[in-house]
Design a protein around this nucleic acid. Structure first.
Lengths: 202, 202
DNA sequence: GTCTATATCGGGATAGAC
DNA sequence: GTCTATCCCGATATAGAC
């Protein structure tokens, strides 16, 4: 399986793994070379510099986590079902990649400019969500909330508990790994209920 | 004002500033020395190593942002007023220190063990909040929610929008700084309404 | 395309003068 | 207590053999 990858892909895969774990500043080319099972010089042969290798790796990770999240809202489900489906799938995705949220937050704060090209190319656009919220308000199914606040509320409730796990697991669960894993699993239902309860017209 | 600080405090203050901006790995002792207006060797004279200086700096920042947040819930206000007050004050604190949330998330993921001593010494304990939630449920003023989920929901809604600002500002506000500043200001009311709406028994 | 060897630089840390 | 000079290592990056 891994054997079938060519060298370039093997390097990129290793780079993603190491960068996500240690961040740009905490990562050395040597560690990536070790992870890929090849020599340090080859990294430069394929990607010229650490900076350029990082850009490829970051873009690769980013598109898996940001635009994909929004796809669900383009479907034709009932709005509340869409919210439930989105939250469930997104929390799953995050739990399977627990280091990614912290990594992305770290790197966008270190260098916000990395987003410039990536967002343009990846075509991240939440307007589909905003339009639908306005429609739901007009039809009277939800109360008059700001669609932008609602969007960021949902994102916050999904992402932050994963990004802050080392801290929250300790202060709320006495650092019990399993308890926090169960807690995150519960959140798929809990967060959806919370959001829907907050906006549903009764 | 800055003149009145002794050298040790001057160094610590400079270290906090640089570490928060660039993280542990992205910070060099030289940058801290420059920021403090003194020589590199003096850092080692006062703090022995980068690691030890970082620990002091991190603990210093941490206690300003985590335990202090919980103090509000020990007051004697009405529960909903407490929630409003907490969210308003906390978002203010975060907006005034916009790099801190990302910094803390970054460092706890890099090295979760730094929390070990700090949390013990700082005495971070949200149980006061949990108890009060249980009481409110018993008295029938709010619906039966999990107090732990509620706690982390509130934290998420306050912290994440600040920590993810470079990203969210771009995809939701076309990178308009002022619009995002206004948005964060609005959130003091918006988030409180959202939370209370989600839990209030009607 | 892949390796070893090496150039060059910047980092943390210490010695020692004042 | 504060400085300059220096040590030593690890980092990025390149040269050149195979």
């Amino acid at each position: 399986m891994k054997r079938s990858l060519n060298t370039e892909d093997k390097i990129l895969k290793a780079a993603i793994q190491v960068f996500v774990k240690s961040g740009f500043e905490g990562t050395s080319m040597q560690k990536i070379a070790d992870e890929a099972g090849i020599n340090k010089a080859l990294l430069h042969y394929y990607f010229r510099s650490k900076e350029k290798l990082f850009e490829k790796a970051f873009a690769n990770i980013f598109v898996k986590f940001v635009p994909r999240a929004l796809e669900i809202f383009t479907s034709e489900l009932d709005f509340f079902d869409k919210i439930r489906l989105f939250i469930g799938t997104y929390i799953d995705l995050l739990v399977q990649n627990p280091l990614v949220p912290g990594f992305i937050l770290q790197e966008i704060n270190r260098n916000p400019d990395i987003l410039y090209n990536i967002i343009r190319e990846a075509g991240v656009d939440p307007s589909f969500f905003f339009i639908q919220v306005e429609k739901e308000i007009a039809s009277g199914s939800i109360v008059a909330v700001s669609s932008k606040h609602l969007f960021i509320n949902i994102m916050s409730l999904c992402i932050f508990p994963v990004a802050s796990r080392p801290l929250m697991q300790r202060i709320v669960f006495n650092n019990d790994e399993r308890a926090y894993a169960i807690f995150l699993e519960e959140r798929k239902k809990e967060v959806a209920d919370f959001v829907i309860n907050a906006i549903k017209r009764k």
